[in-house]
């Protein structure tokens, strides 16, 4: 759907040349939710603006929906933008227009006749859950409602790609969840490809299929969200993953745990994806004559399944413990014995 080949973007400033995007290669597939994460200044804002031509790359090629957008003229680019729309961190609604008029704006730009505009606007208001708010002005709405207007506006011309520029960063956690749910539902309902940039790993974890990690203008790591969460390679990725899983804290306290639970065996289970759906614990307790004690747990849910760790204390007959560990192994959950009695 979107492919970037050796794309770079340099800015010439008085302080010298800044390389905002440095030789980036990416392939974003039709219908997926692709996340780009990085701290501020990593180049992700510039990168996302390259995808609809708001910024022109200084090198490389960008192909969106089969069209090479790097070399086409402004007129053609405007046509492309009807199908590649964008939502923003600060919503960027026109204060002088009501909710309905804001949503109608891209339709006016695309030259849709008035009666069709009205029908489409009503559809969109319903889709984003703003029924009855059509005649409100943005100043009368909450942040979450404003972003819903932003999303409705972005969907007006039935785009194929939705670019989200830190779309939830200005919202409180609860509203963030609601907006993310809305994005997932339109992704599923409309088959829309979504590219989002964020500095919050929670957002990636919650809705993305794949993720690219950016640092200093480069994509330093890329892959399925679950894999990246499971096995982060770069230090920066590890820091992002820590935002949601807090594994460092786990490591620090393991020694304490060993001291606290001297009996039996402490084992650490690591879940990847689907296994978390299976009731491993209850089977373990039913099948083996063991005392099972949950010592510590941290399970996070990503779009393609849950992952996390669970530390159990198994107390009882030594052979039963061994059999139990064998059983867990067979469930394809990786197991690690922390202390040996």
């Amino acid at each position: 759907m979107i492919s970037l080949k050796d794309v770079s973007k340099k800015f010439n400033t008085k302080q010298g040349t800044i390389i905002a995007v440095d030789d980036v290669n990416l392939d974003i597939k039709q219908g997926e939710i692709f996340g780009i994460i990085g701290y501020s200044g990593a180049g992700k804002s510039t990168l996302i603006r390259l995808l609809n031509g708001l910024e022109k790359p200084t090198g490389g090629k960008i192909i969106v929906n089969g069209k090479e957008i790097t070399s086409i003229n402004e007129d053609k680019l405007r046509q492309v933008r009807h199908k590649v729309s964008m939502i923003f961190q600060h919503f960027n609604l026109l204060w002088s227009r009501t909710v309905a008029e804001n949503i109608a704006f891209p339709l006016e730009i695309a030259g849709v006749p008035k009666d069709q505009r009205l029908a489409r606007v009503n559809e969109l208001i319903e889709l984003v859950g703003l029924e009855g708010r059509g005649n409100y002005y943005p100043s009368q709405l909450s942040g979450g409602q404003k972003q819903r207007v932003g999303i409705a506006r972005a969907l007006a011309n039935r785009p194929e790609v939705l670019l989200c520029d830190e779309a939830t960063s200005a919202l409180d956690p609860e509203t963030t969840d609601a907006i993310l749910d809305l994005l997932v539902s339109i992704n599923e309902k409309l088959g829309l490809t979504i590219v989002l940039i964020t500095h919050e790993m929670q957002v990636i974890q919650k809705i993305c299929n794949r993720v690219a990690v950016m640092e200093g203008g480069r994509v330093v790591e890329e892959g399925d969200v679950l894999e990246v969460f499971q096995n982060p390679q770069q230090p920066i990725t590890k820091r992002f993953v820590t935002q949601v899983s807090d594994t460092t804290q786990t490591m620090q306290t393991i020694q304490n745990l060993v001291d606290l639970y001297p009996n039996g065996k402490l084992i650490k289970l690591t879940f990847v994806g689907e296994q978390t759906e299976q009731p491993i614990l209850s089977r373990l307790i039913k099948q083996f004559k063991l005392e099972v004690n949950i010592v510590q747990g941290n399970i996070s849910h990503t779009k393609s399944g849950a992952f996390g760790t669970l530390i159990l204390q198994l107390d009882g007959d030594a052979s039963a413990i061994d059999e139990a560990i064998q059983f867990i192994h067979e469930q394809k959950v990786s197991t690690e014995v922390i202390n040996n009695d």
């Binding site: 933008r81 729309s85 923003f88 960027n92 006016e108």
Partner: peptide, 25 residues
């Protein structure tokens, strides 16, 4: 500035931006 950027991201022409964004806003 974000509002102007949003209008551009929707594929607005400069004349549209003048009449529908700059002047009303």
């Amino acid at each position: 500035k974000g509002v102007l950027e949003a209008a551009r991201s929707m594929g607005a022409k400069t004349s549209t931006i003048i009449w529908k964004v700059l002047l009303p806003e």
